[in-house]
Design a protein around this nucleic acid. Structure first.
Lengths: 144, 144
DNA sequence: CTGGCTGCAAAGACTTTGCAAGGCT
DNA sequence: AGCCTTGCAAAGTCTTTGCAGCCAG
């Protein structure tokens, strides 16, 4: 279990005057311990498995809260909304399997070139970006 | 009005044995005539303005249909789902304004490097990808 | 003609919200 | 103790679906 990661985020939340409840701690632990993108139902289920039984609305509210504090990113996958804990150092994009919906991070980001192109072509002021790659994971390729 | 573009897609649909109804024709015209990403409500409204009054479910079904035929792309924007007509030649990514939600295409795609990185780092088989950039358009920068 | 397409209305999935009770600090 | 957070239930939004009737080919 990635306690250091969880604790770091908890400290940030405390500094902002947010209370640390079992639901919040549980969700942070879950997000800290995975490199998958998770949707609300997956987080809800994972919480139950940990013995933290909460209402769905709590999960939604908690994720909104974390998102507003810039601790968690809400990602729009086609036909699904997923969440991930933001890393302070680097940031990642994800490979998403079209069959089993598993995700894995990839160490690549086109941000620098992207920014250059935008500056050259437009007067748009970029703030953030999303990049996801859809395809088939190793396991699902073999199944086919 | 971009009739050539519309007609080209209509021909593709006909070849696949799909019928060309007023709803389908209207939606194709709308998508052909914009470089914006449109959501279902925007397409529905644009149809009405053209005098083509249809049910929401028809818009959904039509877009699903086009999407299945690879003519239209369904994009997941955070908190919104948008659609665009696929270009056969090139493909584009979009700049999305966080304030007014307008979109503009940009002539850049990291696909080549991306594929290289995926091949090097993983055994994932990429099929498609999504890249969107969020920020502020020229008009909204001035308003601030 | 005739099967695919549409309208309608209802259901379904997901998310948000108001209020009272409970628990973190 | 005070007030932020949660549970509950209801409402809201968006999307899908079954069925009957219509229309493009």
């Amino acid at each position: 279990m990635n306690q250091a990661k969880t604790q770091a985020v908890i400290n940030k939340l405390k500094k902002k005057g947010e209370r640390i409840t079992p639901a919040r701690k549980g969700i942070l632990e879950i997000l800290s311990d995975t490199d998958q993108l998770l949707n609300v139902a997956e987080i809800y289920d994972a919480l139950r498995k940990k013995g933290v039984v909460v209402n769905y609305s709590t999960v939604y509210r908690t994720l909104d809260n974390f998102s507003k504090h810039g601790l968690v990113e809400k990602l729009a996958i086609v036909d699904e909304t997923k969440y991930k804990l933001l890393e302070q150092q680097a940031h990642f994009h994800h490979l998403i399997c079209k069959k089993c919906h598993s995700t894995q991070p990839i160490n690549y980001c086109p941000y620098d070139e992207l920014q250059e192109v935008i500056k050259t072509q437009t007067k748009f002021l970029p703030v953030e970006h999303r990049l996801e790659i859809y395809g088939y994971c190793e396991a699902c390729q073999k199944k086919k």
